[in-house]
Design a protein around this nucleic acid. Structure first.
Length: 854
RNA sequence: GGGCCCUUAGCUCAGUCCGGCUAGAGCGCUUCCCUGACACGGAAGAGGCCACUGGUUCAAGUCCAGUAGGGCCCACCA
């Protein structure tokens, strides 16, 4: 035991020791029911970790450590999500590059900013080939992963670092591709041309799950269409630039104003296109004039109308977000006045949607088809959650996974145990709101490629509807570097040859397979049998609709089961003003490395452990200070207990606590163990900590003071032996109860007097502690003794003297039962309060303590 | 528009499931104390219409109904 114990340096010392001794290494010889397997979220390695990560990952570690101490062999791997748009963006920014797929690989390429540098590129990004870019990604990503690993180890996550994976690595790629091919064989994965939500900056499709609504300013413009008799038919629109893409006018079937018009046609202003006037339930009489123009496509409602009403398709927006050139007078751009339409449209072609918007408003004003002034509004518009410009809808060819029936998905949600249970509702809401199937295609570069090629006919046309699958035995495969089965590389992109599928999978298409990736599905049958279905999926509530949901879908299809038995949903960290502390907004204060340096890892974990499962919590450094104080207290109280002398049981193994106060302490401790255990079983680590802590402080402040004098007594004195035995029992129990929360300080203290790691020791048994307490004793003994001591202290405080100041005598009035308790503890009370004469006890109604100082 | 969660001391939160003494803790604040585990400490004090309104009950912070505010999820997006 060190002369003067300190918390400083414990993180470094113990993480090395744990790694060296393999304390958290998974023993794969254990049978399934002795294993507790955890499907940890692979953090996106696109940025810095912030205190929100520490918060939720600590929660998982608390559960892991508890389960390990209860005897389960914990399977706790860690993944890195280095796949996807976020990483691409990060690498682009870091290195000052942007992919141009038309460029060839340049072996001597050097990015403007070296990938191992700390800075970010300032200048305009330079174009780079796809293979060069992937090389850059592969250089950047391991550095990020290492910094994450560093933090996770320092914060004390009891992960088995020999079980790690990356979502772009060979294992994850193989599982993703195999899963895809199996669904393709069963017709569950399919390829289709379809209107797709499209980010014009990143130039990729975006899945429903990655959408985010944002309130943005806009304006209603009232455009005058002409009815069958030339009468004006005003409509309101926020997107006049799509007028040329108008394919119909829609109103609600019950809208009296338009009853006579359904089935007739109207004419669009400027472009003179004849469009049908149709009825649809989604028409809203309350909105604008009750009559809407349908364009292909301005928003998702347009897509619904277009599908439901079998409307024409007039596509204007290209994938770069600009309006394409079209020829008026030719299908599908028939016009009553093609010359005028062409003249007007030529002013829009090539412009971005925003530029075209401004110009067409001018044109409409000139032609007199705009009624009144624009009316500014704010409205919700769909964005990619990381994007900067509103999403557009383009028509393109994508891979989809068909969802199971909603009823089936809801049933799976029922099978899963949710902690807290109300989070199930998020899942159910999402399932009930599903529209269409899951688009798993991303037009990106750094991701899992589809193991697919397409034949090219003699005319050089690629037949996207006749995909050629990879042989499952050859996975993982990159179709852009390996020729299709039955072809040679020389036939790539040649007439009569083949073309690789150019796209990559949505990141969730891979992440959804994480339970299978980590458990060795289709690769390590033995490991799989011992770990799947997994015991726990911990995750944030914001990705219930993505990660949790898609994982349920995949396990349902592949293995006809839920992927895990429990889903523990953690909340967010919020700023004091209740805003979510987002990744980008994660300020300097929330930098976990700084926080650890300032307060220590145990203190940070203490703060995190106060977050109730599923509830958001405020970032609060004050809580970390308290955590540090608790850790320091453990250190000092332990030093006191262990410095008193050798364990009396070394001399006589049968030594038991005899003094009533000691036995009362152990009895109280036994019920704390009972409660903490029950709480942990319900994944309520926060309450377990609270129960433990609220017994630990009186233990230090009252109990230790009360027994000090006995503890300093002569060796062999039974009263002293009783204290020493009790202290050791209590200390061991407290250390174990705190071990999941404060792994470093508890291990440190453990190492002073025990062998092995506390984190591989047994979780305390309430029955054992209770047995040590012996036969039941009167309730409230410890509390009453503490109460009297507190009142004596109060007198000293009032007199502004030291707590060591002697007290001449103490008069106590109390009920009979209470007096009995006080009598039992009188010796300890007098010693702790430095009372020089026997307590003067009087029976009475009220509880009064009067201390006369010397 | 539908749903979920939250609202308790200046601040951060327990307590609500399962109704029961005078509603708790810590931080902060005030005062005092360096005592042989700990000054990175200890002792004590002030501080509360338990968001609001009604109901059930002998009894409501706790149960029921509703209202308001905050957060989030879903839907809508002409």
């Amino acid at each position: 035991m060190p002369e003067r114990p300190t918390l400083d340096g414990l993180e470094h010392k113990w993480r090395e020791r744990w790694e060296r001794d393999g304390v958290y290494r998974f023993d794969r010889t254990k049978p399934r029911d002795a294993v507790f397997s955890i499907d940890t979220p692979p953090p996106t390695v696109s940025g810095r970790l912030h205190s929100g990560h520490v918060f939720s990952y600590t929660h998982t570690d608390l559960i892991a450590r508890y389960r390990r101490m209860t005897g389960r062999e914990v399977f706790y791997p860690m993944g890195w999500d280095d796949n996807g748009l976020n990483v691409e963006r990060r690498v682009q920014l870091m290195t000052g590059t942007i992919v141009d797929p038309s460029l060839a690989y340049d072996p001597d390429f050097k990015p403007p900013v070296p990938p191992d540098g700390p800075g970010q590129a300032k200048a305009k990004p330079i174009p780079v080939s796809r293979p060069n870019f992937i090389e850059l990604c592969q250089q950047v990503v391991p550095q990020l992963e290492e910094s994450y690993h560093e933090l996770w180890s320092t914060i004390g996550l009891s992960v088995d670092w020999s079980h790690t994976y990356t979502t772009i690595g060979p294992r994850a790629t193989r599982v993703s591709q195999l899963g895809f091919l199996r669904l393709l064989d069963r017709g569950i994965a399919y390829r289709a041309e379809s209107p797709t939500l499209w980010d014009v900056d990143m130039r990729t499709s975006v899945a429903q799950a990655e959408l985010q609504d944002r309130e943005v300013p806009g304006a209603y413009y009232r455009l005058i269409f002409r009815g069958p008799l030339g009468e004006p038919l005003p409509i309101d629109t926020t997107r006049p630039e799509l007028l040329a893409a108008c394919v119909a006018m829609v109103a609600h079937p019950d809208d009296a104003r338009y009853q006579g018009l359904f089935g007739q046609t109207a004419t669009t202003p400027i472009f003179g296109v004849s469009v049908p006037i149709v009825a649809h339930e989604l028409g809203d009489p309350e909105k604008g004039t009750g009559l809407a123009m349908v364009c292909t496509f301005g928003d998702t409602t347009d897509v619904t109308w277009w599908r439901d009403l079998n409307l024409d398709l007039r596509v204007l927006l290209q994938r770069d977000g600009r309006l394409r050139s079209v020829t008026w007078g030719e299908p599908p751009f028939q016009s009553m006045d093609p010359v005028r339409a062409q003249a007007a449209y030529d002013e829009l072609a090539g412009k971005t949607a925003k530029q075209a918007h401004s110009r067409i408003v001018e044109l409409l004003q000139q032609s007199g088809d705009l009624e009144g002034a624009p009316r500014p509004i704010t409205h919700a518009v769909k964005f990619w959650e990381n994007g900067t410009r509103p999403l557009e809808i383009v028509s393109s060819n994508q891979w989809f996974i068909r969802y199971p029936e909603k009823a089936v998905l809801l049933e799976r949600g029922e099978e899963l145990r949710w902690w807290p249970d109300f989070m199930r509702v998020r899942y159910e809401n999402w399932v009930n709101g599903l529209i269409g199937d899951w688009n798993i295609t991303r037009q990106r570069f750094f991701g899992v490629p589809f193991p697919i090629w397409y034949p090219i006919d003699e005319d050089g046309t690629i037949d996207y509807l006749a995909p050629i699958s990879a042989d499952p035995g050859t996975l993982p495969v990159d179709p852009t570097t390996v020729p299709a089965p039955g072809f040679t590389e020389s036939q790539r992109n040649q007439p009569g040859g083949f073309a690789a599928d150019p796209d990559v999978m949505d990141t969730w298409a891979t992440s959804s397979m994480s339970p299978m990736i980590v458990t060795g599905w289709e690769e390590d049958a033995d490991l799989f049998a011992r770990t799947f279905p997994m015991d726990l999926r911990p995750q944030a509530h914001e990705i219930i609709r993505t990660w949790l949901f898609t994982s349920v879908v995949r396990a349902h299809y592949e293995l006809d089961t839920i992927p895990w038995r429990n889903a523990a949903i953690s909340g967010f960290i919020v700023d004091p003003d209740r805003k979510k502390l987002s990744k980008s907004a994660g300020n300097q204060e929330g930098d976990p490395t700084l926080l650890i340096a300032r307060h220590g890892a145990d203190a940070l974990r203490y703060w995190a452990a106060q977050g109730r499962p599923g509830l958001d919590m405020t970032f609060d450094e004050g809580q970390m200070k308290i955590g540090r104080r608790l850790a320091t207290k453990l250190l000092n109280a332990s030093r006191f207990a262990l410095n008193l002398g050798p364990d009396p049981r070394d001399r006589d193994p049968d030594t038991m606590p005899g003094a009533p106060l000691d036995r009362a302490l152990l009895a109280g401790l036994a019920s704390v163990v009972e409660e903490a255990t029950a709480n942990f079983e319900q994944f309520d680590y926060a309450r377990a900590l609270e129960r433990t802590e609220s017994f630990f402080w009186p233990f230090c402040d009252d109990y230790l003071e009360l027994v000090k004098n006995r503890a300093y007594g002569d060796a062999g004195d039974p009263d002293r032996d009783s204290v020493l035995v009790t202290l050791r029992l209590a200390l061991e129990t407290f250390l174990k109860l705190f071990a999941p929360f404060l792994p470093f300080v508890t291990e440190e203290v453990w190492s002073w007097w025990k062998t092995g790691s506390i984190h591989r020791s047994d979780w305390p048994q309430a029955a054992f502690v209770k047995a040590a307490a012996g036969p039941p004793i009167a309730d409230g003994l410890l509390e009453t003794a503490g109460e009297v001591l507190s009142l004596i202290r109060k007198a000293k405080t009032k007199a502004q003297v030291s707590m060591r100041a002697p007290v001449a005598n103490v008069s106590i009035t109390a009920g009979r039962d209470k007096l009995a308790l006080i009598t039992i503890a009188e010796g300890d009370i007098r010693n702790a309060g430095v009372v020089e004469s026997p307590l003067r006890l009087t029976e009475g109604e009220e509880f009064l303590v009067e201390a006369i100082l010397v």
